[in-house]
């Protein structure tokens, strides 16, 4: 019995190592993706940006996972930024995050830009909604290039649009992401 347990454990260990290596061989990550959004008020619009988008695309596991620290968003106006952080209650809900999977086909061998669709849970302001986002994926020399955009409706996430005098910020915000994800190397795999 003891011998069987040894063999069983060693087998599990080897299987895990093999599984892990196989899965991570097609994992792409970034910590410097770009997020931008455009918000409109009557006669005016402004853009917020961040270059701290963290993301993982695991083709083997069909996992797409992105998040951003909302306090890295910068609209170019300090007071507006502070109002935005307060509106989003970033101390309680510091991240906007998406976890889902590719629901369209993607050929990892092709170097062509391919239209893809991902479906999953997007969370911001403590509210989670299941969303579908369309974008493009393209294999590059170092990894994957991702571009995507979607319309975020603030009411869906219980975000009260900030008021300016007698009018309010448009409830619908266009969100865009761009990221160059790098293939994880062996050193990263060990962590």
């Amino acid at each position: 019995m003891r011998f069987i347990m040894k063999i069983f454990s060693v087998s599990i260990f080897i299987a895990i190592l093999m599984f892990s290596t196989t899965a991570q061989a097609q994992s792409y990550i970034t910590e410097t993706g770009r997020v931008s959004f455009t918000s409109s008020v009557p006669l005016h619009s402004f853009t917020g940006r961040s270059e701290h988008l963290n993301g993982l695309i695991d083709l083997e596991e069909n996992l797409v996972d992105f998040y951003i620290d909302l306090q890295t968003l910068d609209t170019g106006n300090g007071k507006r930024d502070r109002d935005m952080y307060r509106t989003l209650e970033v101390e309680e809900h510091p991240f906007a995050e998406f976890t889902g999977s590719l629901t369209s086909s993607y050929d990892p061998e092709s170097a062509e830009e391919q239209n893809v669709t991902v479906t999953g849970d997007f969370s911001i302001h403590g509210v989670t909604q299941n969303i579908e986002v369309e974008g493009t994926l393209q294999k590059t020399g170092a990894g994957l290039q991702l571009n995507a955009s979607w319309i975020l409706n603030m009411a869906d996430y219980k975000i009260e649009p900030p008021g300016i005098l007698f009018y309010r910020v448009d409830e619908e915000i266009e969100v865009r992401i761009e990221a160059e994800l790098e293939l994880q190397d062996d050193e990263t795999n060990e962590t």
């Binding site: 596991e61 996992l63 996972d65 992105f66 998040y67 620290d69 306090q71 995050e97 976890t99």
Partner: peptide
């Protein structure tokens, strides 16, 4: 037997990295 338990626990711990790896760990920048 105690040894069997140790092997099982070892196997479970070895599985943990694969489980944890599924999602990125959320870390604040600011």
């Amino acid at each position: 037997k105690p040894n069997s338990i140790i092997y099982l626990i070892t196997g479970f711990v070895l599985c943990l990295p694969a489980v944890c790896y599924a999602q990125l760990e959320r870390e604040r920048v600011v």
